[in-house]
C-alpha cells in the first residue's frame, strides 16, 4: 500500500502531512508507505499509489489518477486524518 502526501514544494507541508498520516495509520493499525512529493514528482510517485493526500488548494494540480484523492483541511488534526484515511482505505 502506498500513500502520497502532496504539496507544492515537496518539503515542509507535505512532510508534516506524512508524519501525521503515519500516526493516523498507526491508530488504524494499517501499514503503508507514505511518500512526500511535489507537483513535479507527483505523476511518477502516484502511478502505484492508492491514496493521494492533499490540501483543498492543491487538488486542481493532481490531474488524472487512479488513486483516491483525500482532501485534508487541517494537517494537524489527527482525528480528521484518521477518519478520512479509514474511509479511503476501508
Amino acid at each position: 500500500m502506498k500513500i502520497i502526501a502532496f504539496c507544492g514544494a515537496g518539503i515542509g507541508t507535505s512532510a508534516i502531512l506524512k508524519v501525521n498520516a503515519e500516526r493516523a495509520l498507526a491508530r488504524l493499525g494499517i501499514e503503508a508507505d507514505i511518500e512526500a512529493t511535489d507537483v513535479a514528482g507527483l505523476s511518477v510517485a502516484a502511478e502505484d499509489a492508492q491514496v493521494i493526500l492533499a490540501s483543498p488548494e492543491l487538488v486542481k494540480f493532481i490531474g488524472k489518477t487512479y488513486a483516491d484523492v483525500v482532501v485534508i483541511e487541517n494537517y494537524f488534526d489527527l482525528d480528521e486524518l484518521t477518519r478520512k484515511l479509514e474511509i479511503a482505505l476501508g
Binding site: C7, T13, S55, E57
Partner: peptide, 16 residues
C-alpha cells in the same frame, strides 16, 4: 503558483 495551501491549520501558515 499553488495558492494558499500553506495555511495548513486554522490560523496557521507554514511558508516555505
Amino acid at each position: 503558483e499553488f495558492g494558499a495551501y500553506i495555511v495548513i491549520a486554522p490560523g496557521l501558515a507554514l511558508a516555505h
